[in-house]
């Protein structure tokens, strides 16, 4: 068995296959338990809840994780950006919604810029602590703007078509939102895995000093990654708002952890240098299937979170343990051949 695995070609030994297997297992279990409710069309409809807003935020944080940094202010960034959008649009009738969206994206970019500046200028401080502070700051500003109110007047297409709209494809109802994230994923895939600047991002995350000595502009790359992360967080907030229909300062609370969990489950490492867009997509699908199934069976958000937590620990441990067993087996085999001779 061990030998058979080690003979497989490189592409078949990828982490992504484990995610594919897990997806199939989860689908088999829950469609067995709930054959009426756990069906592909229903799951497809649920993707708008579990895949889109978190997906955008996970893509943003993926680049930051590959660089070996972390940003836990993205939930707050989403809240502040969405607040700016809602408040701008509600100022008066003359303001076009597109201007509000532009301002929202700008807000996200500025939030990311502040994080990036603090992290690149003060390398001795932990990114975790810096973004913990800015998290409070951004959500605080959202609170100052909105107080405890919620802002919920948006153009009809925003909540109706984007939030709940879908179109028919081969007899299936495909949410419009899902198409948005599915359109962005290939762009990220090509950028991160196939382009020179993507390679440099992985390089900077693997060894910052050596990359800098090799002419990689590490400072610029980090700034760009944080700004883009802010924009992606704002987009996450945008799609979340279209789904919930209103903005409060508490929007997207806890989403930073969900996004990080998705990226890590997809193969990213918090110590930098590793991450996969394909893995991220599979992690999103796995989470959708799992959360949906758990909600159907238990209908309890606490059980849901507990199960997801357990699963994450297991999944992060599995490759580590597998590696250890593999190393031990190699040594044992060599010792056996030694004794024979």
């Amino acid at each position: 068995m061990e030998r058979a695995i080690s003979r497989l070609p490189r592409w078949m030994k990828r982490w992504e296959w484990i995610l594919v297997i897990l997806i199939l297992v989860v689908y088999a279990i829950f469609s067995g338990l709930q054959p009426e409710n756990y069906t592909f069309p229903k799951l497809l409809n649920q993707t708008r809840v579990y895949m889109v807003d978190v997906g955008f935020m996970a893509l943003g944080i993926l680049v930051v994780l590959i660089l070996g940094d972390i940003d836990i202010s993205i939930g707050a960034t989403a809240a502040l950006s969405a607040t700016v959008m809602a408040v701008t649009y509600n100022q008066g009738d003359g303001i076009p919604f597109i201007a509000a969206i532009a301002l929202m994206l700008l807000t996200g970019a500025v939030c990311g810029l502040i994080n990036g500046l603090l992290i690149t200028r003060f390398p001795e401080l932990f990114p975790m602590i810096i973004t913990l502070s800015t998290q409070t700051l951004y959500r605080g500003i959202a609170y100052i703007i909105l107080k405890d109110q919620s802002a919920g007047r948006f153009p009809g297409w925003f909540s109706k078509d984007l939030g709940y709209g879908s179109f028919s494809l081969f007899g299936l109802d495909v949410p419009i939102m899902l198409v948005c994230i599915l359109a962005v994923l290939p762009v990220y895939y090509i950028w991160l895995h196939k382009s020179a600047s993507g390679r440099r991002i992985f390089a900077a995350g693997t060894n910052l000093t050596a990359s800098r000595y090799s002419g990689v502009q590490t400072g610029r790359i980090k700034m760009a990654a944080f700004i883009l992360n802010g924009i992606m967080a704002a987009l996450g907030g945008f799609f979340l708002t279209s789904r919930t229909g209103s903005v409060k300062y508490t929007l997207a609370t806890g989403y930073e952890m969900q996004a990080i969990a998705i990226a890590v489950l997809g193969g990213a490492s918090t110590s930098g240098g590793r991450g996969s867009v394909a893995g991220l997509l599979l992690a999103l699908i796995l989470m959708t299937g799992l959360k949906n199934g758990l909600m159907l069976v238990y209908n309890d958000a606490f059980i849901l979170n507990l199960s997801i937590g357990l699963l994450l620990i297991l999944i992060v441990l599995v490759p580590d343990i597998a590696g250890r067993i593999r190393r031990q087996n190699t040594v044992r085999r060599q010792r056996l051949t030694l004794k024979k001779t």
Binding site: A196, T206, N207
Partner: peptide, 25 residues
């Protein structure tokens, strides 16, 4: 060096621009 990286990826890192075709490595 980037120790976990392959020899060839290390060698091409400083001049990745030479290995691009329409923006793709």
């Amino acid at each position: 060096l980037l120790l976990p990286w392959s020899v060839q990826d290390n060698i091409t890192l400083p001049r990745l621009d030479l290995h691009q075709k329409r923006g793709i490595l």
